[in-house]
């Protein structure tokens, strides 16, 4: 299988503190890969390195064969990133935001708008200023913005955070749809049902170290866990 993401012994220090301690994993092209772990485990740092925002202190990562440090600009043409706590431009309307992104990614504005409307499900609200959007609406417009970029790799940090059940289910369906079209996804989520539903493979990260990696089903079988939550707790030693 062709490799979309290849992280090799990635270390990241903030001052004296190591946020990542030799993290390595691979994501195949077209895969939905989940990076799972408790708060402060190192997921966001890892995503930021792959998204070219941070540089690894040691080790390295390649996206479709391109180095995230040396070829950062080229990598940015292949990816699109939705951070967990991303906000919106309050002065722009949803339509203006999508048009802006369409221009940045050289896409037809009308086509991008139609796609964004479908992904976000915001309808007429797209014409309103994003400053007036609810948390859920903001998340949906940002997800739409991430996907209309048509990246080869979409990095989604908690894609359904702040969404109600209906919209969360809808968004999962959208991710699945794009995945079937060949888009690679690197996602994180605290919702284990979501991870189980979406991810082809997962990696558990804790304290900056990958402690388990594989297909959700085989990982659960190996640990004798009934679901991912049980597996997660057993991997962390009974939920300390």
């Amino acid at each position: 299988m062709a490799v979309a993401v290849e992280a090799e012994s990635v270390w990241k220090f903030f001052g004296e503190k190591a946020a990542l301690k030799g993290v390595s994993f691979r994501v195949g092209v077209g895969e939905v890969f989940g990076l799972i772990g408790p708060n402060g485990a190192g997921k966001t740092t890892c995503f930021r390195i792959i998204a070219t925002i941070l540089r690894p202190s040691r080790g390295g990562a390649r996206i479709f064969g391109l180095d995230v440090v040396k070829d950062a600009q080229a990598v940015r043409r292949l990816i699109s990133y939705l951070p967990e706590e991303a906000g919106v431009y309050r002065g722009l309307s949803g339509v203006e935001y999508i048009r802006f992104l369409a221009r940045v990614y050289n896409r037809d504005e009308g086509e991008a708008l139609r796609e964004a409307e479908e992904v976000s499900g915001l309808g007429e609200a797209l014409r309103a200023r994003m400053g007036s959007y609810s948390l859920g609406m903001r998340r949906r417009i940002l997800l739409a913005g991430t996907l209309i970029a048509r990246p080869r790799l979409a990095i989604l940090d908690e894609p359904t955070a702040g969404l109600d059940v209906m919209h969360a289910v809808y968004v999962r369906g959208v991710i699945r749809k794009y995945s079937r079209q060949g888009m690679t996804f690197l996602i994180s989520s605290h919702n284990m049902l979501e991870v189980e539903y979406l991810c082809d493979r997962i990696a558990f990260i804790d304290g900056g170290v990958i402690i388990a990696e594989g297909e959700p089903k085989s990982l659960m079988e190996r640990a004798g866990a009934e679901n991912l939550e049980e597996l997660f707790l057993s991997l962390r030693g009974g939920g300390r």
Partner: peptide, 9 residues
């Protein structure tokens, strides 16, 4: 407003 990270990518 947490828009910087998206902008930087």
């Amino acid at each position: 407003a947490k828009t910087l990270e998206i902008l930087l990518t």
